[in-house]
């Protein structure tokens, strides 16, 4: 049941991104190109998604726990530190170069375009490298 619900959520997410035009890098880059022919489309997607999520989360949190798990796994970090800012900056640069963030990149992978495969493989390598680096620095902190 848990697997089925995760699959349904992934499908819904992918359909939303596709219908919204977010799997077209030209549309995404058009939003980031404020000095050119600016395309606000991404803003409409964000508005629809954030409002729906904000209302839906509050309805869901009236329950003491999710239907298929024992608790809500919410991020606990509250500090705005160099890692958050540096990570967001690197992500922004990569996003601006090609117009893909992780969701649309994975959805577009199904299109069978070779260079999208290259981007997703490089992204996975980036996740792995960052995880190695984080494990090493946290070990050093522990002494």
């Amino acid at each position: 049941m848990k697997i089925l619900m995760a699959l349904a959520a992934g499908l819904l997410f992918g359909l939303g991104l596709s219908l919204a035009g977010m799997t077209q890098p030209a549309v995404v880059l058009g939003f980031l190109d404020v000095a050119g022919a600016w395309n606000p489309q991404l803003l409409f997607v964000m508005a629809g998604a954030v409002l729906t999520t904000a209302v839906g989360y509050r309805l869901v949190w009236r329950r003491s726990m999710p239907w298929l798990a024992t608790g809500f796994a919410l991020p606990r970090a509250t500090r705005i530190d160099a890692r958050l800012l540096g990570g967001a900056a690197l992500f922004g640069i990569g996003w601006g170069i090609a117009g893909y963030c992780p969701g649309p990149a994975l959805v577009a992978l199904a299109g069978g375009i070779g260079s999208v495969g290259v981007l997703v493989a490089a992204m996975a390598l980036g996740w792995w490298l960052a995880a190695q680096w984080q494990a090493r620095t946290s070990n050093r902190l522990r002494g």
Partner: peptide, 27 residues
């Protein structure tokens, strides 16, 4: 609904690496 990439594959590789590193470090 899948659009065509606008940069060639070497830049796709650079972009992917930055997106991977950045999203993991930036949580």
């Amino acid at each position: 609904g899948i659009g065509t990439p606008v940069v060639r594959w070497p830049w796709m590789a650079v972009a992917g690496l930055l997106v991977g590193l950045g999203t993991r470090l930036g949580s």
